[in-house]
Amino acid sequence: MIETITQPWPWYVAGIIIGLIVPTLLILGNKHFGISSNLRHICAACFPSNISFFNYDWKKESWNLFFIGGILVGGVISTLYLSSPNPVIIHPDLAKDLSQYGITDFSGMVPVQLFSFESLFTLRGLIMMVGGGCLVGFGTRYAGGCTSGHAIMGLSDLQWPSLVATICFMIGGFLMTNLILPYILAL
């Protein structure tokens, strides 16, 4: 049993569990699945700065902050107790592409050669960590949701604006990975 759990889980297991989070949150308290709103709640709680967009009662949305707190704890539990002893398998073409840019450590979930405190002092690391993070925060709020709020919750409720948003997420992602990221990685 424990061996099955520590293996990487197939996509359909993950998809079913994530899909079931939608009704679970609805039934537990009429909460709509969405994560990026938390970034707004944190702004509202810590730096409202008299901006009307951040002047609302964020405490009413505190369930969402507990939810992401749970995600963080889940990450800790999974890494400490359920992690697979085998290395993560990566597509050989991707490994070949990345090794051109000096990325050769595929052991973690995140490439340590790109995302670390040391790499923050390189132009490449700075663009990827700070620039990438800003794009995620700005873009999700501008779009009114992220992969969870639009792609999963919005599409589950058959909302066509969410489909537009999801298609645009994918367009942005394809552009970055295939056309722009090679130049950033080469820095």
Partner: peptide, 17 residues
């Protein structure tokens, strides 16, 4: 916003969750 997030998603390899 969707496209801007998409660009960031591919750089960081992560959505907010």
């Amino acid at each position: 916003g969707g496209m801007i997030f998409g660009l960031g998603w591919a750089i960081t390899g992560a959505c907010p969750g």
